[in-house]
Nucleic acid binder design. Structure first.
Lengths: 145, 145
DNA sequence: TATTGTTATACTCTATAACTATA
DNA sequence: TATAGTTATAGAGTATAACAATA
């Protein structure tokens, strides 16, 4: 008797929507939207300019202006003038933004660890490896500009 | 020398965002938003009432009213009065909406098949199985109401 | 009274086009 | 002229609260 023929595309999207929903819930519990969480996540490790940030997030520069405005109004990020270009501003996470980002990261880690606990350790390792190969092999999507 | 310690949580979210971005691009190429694609996707196999649909999509009933309004204005779905409840309306995809939905489904399948082609067949089967076990094992998130 | 759905209102998110200031 | 970023404007998406109609 053949196996039930699991559909890879369906499985990928079901899991993707499941993860997005969980992340959205955790973000909402901290009074943030998904895109604000992504913004803070990027700023954890760097201090990019607006255009660079817009490219990461696949937003137009004007959309990003508004996003940063709202985050700045809440004291989560700040614009710092670029030392090398008088036109540019770099975006930096504030201590308050970093604290919030860390809290969300911890909650997400706990949540997804619980989700993954249905698999034994060896399978989790296999899954991590397969996911990594898939992500590494992906062609980057063309930019929106 | 130990393996590079692949992080499962990171891998899951990287892939999730990658898939969402690809789906969003395909939707945009057909002049639809992600949430409109999800709406049409649900209506492929059923004709639910507004509250049922709101629950699936994790939206409030008023948000869903607007979503259905816009889809209806574009001729993609229609409200049909519930035969069993004078207050209720069931939402049905129109032929035009179904055609659009099928086109998007085909594009997504082709795209994700290409993405998955970096893995050999045996690994794709293993991945599908692991994803399925993860999704099946997930506790449903509490409703928003 | 309780339930299904819509409407009024407000906010976030996003895009396009026009603009300012600097390179 | 070209580039970095903002502003004006418009529309989609979302929520809360109040409402209408039916159960």
């Amino acid at each position: 008797m053949p196996a039930p023929a699991l559909n890879l595309v369906d499985g990928l999207f079901q899991l993707s929507f499941l993860l997005q929903a969980r992340l959205t819930h955790i973000a909402a519990a901290h009074d943030l939207s998904l895109i604000q969480v992504r913004l803070l996540g990027i700023l954890r490790d760097c201090e990019p300019g607006m255009l660079e940030l817009a490219r990461y997030l696949e937003l137009t520069k004007s959309s990003l202006s508004g996003l940063v405005d709202r985050a700045e109004a809440r004291g989560l990020v700040e614009r710092v003038p670029s030392p090398s270009d008088g036109r540019g501003a770099n975006i930096r996470v504030t201590p308050r933004g970093r604290k919030l980002s860390k809290a969300i990261e911890a909650a997400v880690n706990a949540d997804v660890d619980a989700l993954a606990s249905v698999l034994p350790e060896a399978d989790r390792r296999r899954l991590a490896s397969l996911l990594d190969r898939l992500v590494q092999g992906a062609q980057p999507a063309p930019p929106l500009d």
